[in-house]
Design a protein around this nucleic acid. Structure first.
Lengths: 102, 102
DNA sequence: TTTGCATATGATAACCTTATCATATGCTTG
DNA sequence: CAAGCATATGATAAGGTTATCATATGCAAA
């Protein structure tokens, strides 16, 4: 159980994945679109999409050689919405923490 | 904003901190008690408590040379409760993800 | 069936995180 | 104030994570 939490948080404690999830909260995108929007390399985006998909946080649909990724809306979206509310309270502290700031 | 999320998740994506938080959800403990319960070294516990305190997730009260740590109940507890509900859905997938499993 | 685009994947070097060790601080009691 | 316990802290080696590079796969159109 403990470990599950850890994996869950780990999935989101990464710049690349958070950025992707952030975009997918608005609407679905193809891999290329995600690359353009983020400025990240294609393989970097693909590798991390793979992780997100494995975890069930995003889903993929094919359209020819294009692959469109979209967020699993019922579950992840509400969690992120909830966190957003709480987040402001911690902002300054989080940013000041020497352990995490690295 | 993105970075704040990252720091938040990062704080919890660590075995030691999760374990401590897990215990503090039940009731407050001193450093020594946390060491005994977890089997972790004292300095390991202290270092991580420091991080949790900086982030505002736990608070500390002194009692002589003892220091009792307790969870910030209004905020972290409800988030963890919410996550617990969603978590079961992801369990198997999370554990299967090659990227996170490492 | 060749070329080109869209995406995936394996290996690994560079980077980041963590636990540990050694030591410091700070009560508290004899 | 000396000794002992409770806890904190700095430095760093060991371990873990990530981005990147090179390359593969797979579709699509000429």
């Amino acid at each position: 159980m403990q470990n599950m939490y850890r994996l869950f948080f780990k999935a989101f404690s990464n710049t690349t994945r958070l950025r992707i999830v952030g975009l997918l909260r608005k609407k679905p995108f193809t891999v290329n679109e995600l690359c353009n929007k983020t400025g990240f390399e294609q393989s970097r985006v693909s590798h991390n999409l793979r992780c997100l998909e494995h975890c069930g946080f995003v889903h993929m649909t094919r359209n020819g050689s294009f692959r469109t990724y979209h967020l699993d809306k019922e579950t992840i979206a509400p969690i992120l919405d909830l966190l957003e509310k709480h987040m402001k309270k911690y902002r300054k502290k989080l940013e000041r923490c020497e352990v995490l700031r690295k």
